[in-house]
Nucleic acid binder design. Structure first.
Length: 426
RNA sequence: GGAGAAGUGGCUGAGUGGUCGAAAGCGCUCCCCUGCUAAGGGAGUAAGGGUCAAAAGCCCUUCGAGGGUUCGAAUCCCUCCUUCUCCGCCA
């Protein structure tokens, strides 16, 4: 959520900034609502103050045994007035709040302008792209030839965009997850955490998926307020909802492995083949909660943590800064890691690392006690994939494929595969 | 799933219709006293919001959540949630 004070004091700045995303902030509507809100709120509070004062007088009069009937009449009228003002005010506040909750975060100045992903800015590349001198297959052909992937079965038992993995491929995914968790806990200092895969709407408001992106979520049917998580970011960041951290207990960083569930509404026809875009996929997620002054340095650090996964997996990748039009709703700035896929002869997103500043913290009331100012201030939150396991699986298959149809596994994973160095050809 | 009990500030805990945003204690902060330590004395110490350029001040809201009764609710009524105990079931 944007800072309401900023909206009141420097609305133009907000309008200009959000326009870079292609977001048209409804300034006129906002101004009108805000003006009425101010009037009504002041009036409501005045009435309430009057009523409180009246009630005290009644209390005293009653205690003194005086006749309170005339006083009651007056107080009753105040109550009626207050009711009607309250009703109007509540409705206004719902409208204002919706407007605020639907506005994206301000972009950092360093974010390049651009309409879509074609304008993203490449920062650096790592790794050698191996020119496969045989007829390279994509991961689906490779895995099916090995009898380790079955989309048809998954479609039968669930539907499109699900998959069934068998044998070495299933184990390889598990190995990847273990490796990533170990790397981040032992080398990067993250605290491992296990969290629920089902969350309530409030948590999704906190991290910004709701109210705007309900269509991207799987909601459990029935009256209950339950959603499948689209990313571990939701439960992990919400560990801090409605809490005040001691400045000594910061920064905090967590790593969690969870499945992620996304409806992929609006992506019909995109990446329909294989594991790239599934309703259910595995991901290892990194989350930071830091003091405001540290968040930009933490973003750079976070990216290197995600990069180190790809380096150790010996997968060529590049880092891009998302342009203004491609940066997600809550992020002030995002770096994507894109891994090389030989079958597509392209880099594809495998990790996304973002600084949310106080945008999520304000929504979920996550604060810390600033010793020097003595005030409670919002924390800054960041998160990044470290990395998406499903896509890492794709990258390992495609980059490790040999001319005989076997898959050479990155050496770091051998220990997690019981010493196995390849997935042999069938 | 059944039966019972309970949810109050950082913590413990008092408070059953009106000067209660809430006694007391602990903790914490500052000050004083003290040769050191121990102990003692005093003051302060919830959050969110509005008004204001800002501060001060003033005001509003919040005693698990949401509704209701009332001039007035921590206190009475209803619904829900959570926790604890016992029983049942269960990975």
């Amino acid at each position: 959520m944007l800072d309401p004070k900023l909206l009141r004091n420097d609305l133009d700045k907000v309008i200009t900034n959000l326009a870079r995303r292609g977001f048209d902030f409804p300034a006129k509507e906002y101004k009108a609502l805000e003006l009425s809100r101010k009037k009504l709120q002041v009036r409501a509070e005045d009435l309430r103050a009057d009523r409180n004062a009246q009630s005290k007088v009644i209390g005293k009069a009653k205690a003194a045994g005086e006749d309170i009937a005339p006083l009651l009449q007056n107080a009753e009228k105040l109550g009626v007035d207050l009711d009607s003002v309250d009703t109007e005010l509540n409705q206004l506040q719902v409208e204002l709040n919706t407007l605020l909750m639907e506005a994206p975060n301000l972009l950092d100045e360093s974010v390049p302008d651009g309409k879509d992903e074609t304008c993203n800015q490449e920062e650096r590349r790592w790794g050698d792209i191996v020119d496969l001198n045989f007829n390279a297959l994509d991961h689906v052909d490779l895995a099916e030839a090995l009898n380790m992937l079955d989309s048809a079965k998954a479609t039968k038992i669930s539907g499109a965009r699900f998959t069934v993995l068998y044998k070495d491929l299933a184990r390889l995914q598990r190995a990847l997850i273990q490796f990533m968790l170990d790397l981040h806990t032992t080398e990067h200092g993250y605290t491992e955490v296990y969290v629920p895969y089902i969350v309530n709407a409030n948590s999704l408001f906190g991290t910004g998926q709701l109210p705007k992106f309900a269509d991207d979520l799987f909601a459990l049917k029935g009256e209950q307020d339950f959603y499948l998580i689209p990313t571990a970011e939701v439960p992990v960041t919400n560990l801090f909802q409605d809490s005040i951290l001691d400045s000594d207990s910061m920064p905090q960083s967590f790593v969690a492995h969870t499945p992620c569930f996304r409806s992929e509404a609006g992506s019909y026809g995109k990446d329909t083949r294989g594991l790239i875009r599934q309703h259910q996929f595995e991901k290892v997620e990194l989350v930071h909660v830091v003091k405001p002054e540290d968040s930009w340095a933490t973003l750079e650090l976070l990216v290197t943590h995600a990069e180190s996964v790809l380096k150790q997996l010996e997968l060529p990748y590049r880092v891009v800064t998302l342009c203004s039009g491609d940066t997600g709703f809550g992020a002030a700035k995002t770096y994507d890691l894109e891994v090389w896929l030989p079958s597509q002869k392209a880099y594809r997103e495998i990790s996304s690392c973002s600084n949310f500043l106080d945008f999520q913290a304000r929504r979920m009331q996550a604060r810390w006690r600033n010793k020097s100012s003595g005030k409670n201030e919002h924390v800054h939150t960041l998160n990044g994939s470290g990395v998406a396991a499903g896509r890492a699986l794709v990258a390992i298959l495609e980059n490790g494929q040999q001319s005989d149809g076997s898959i050479a596994l990155p050496s770091i994973l051998h220990q997690y595969m019981g010493g196995q160095e390849t997935i042999p050809a069938k």
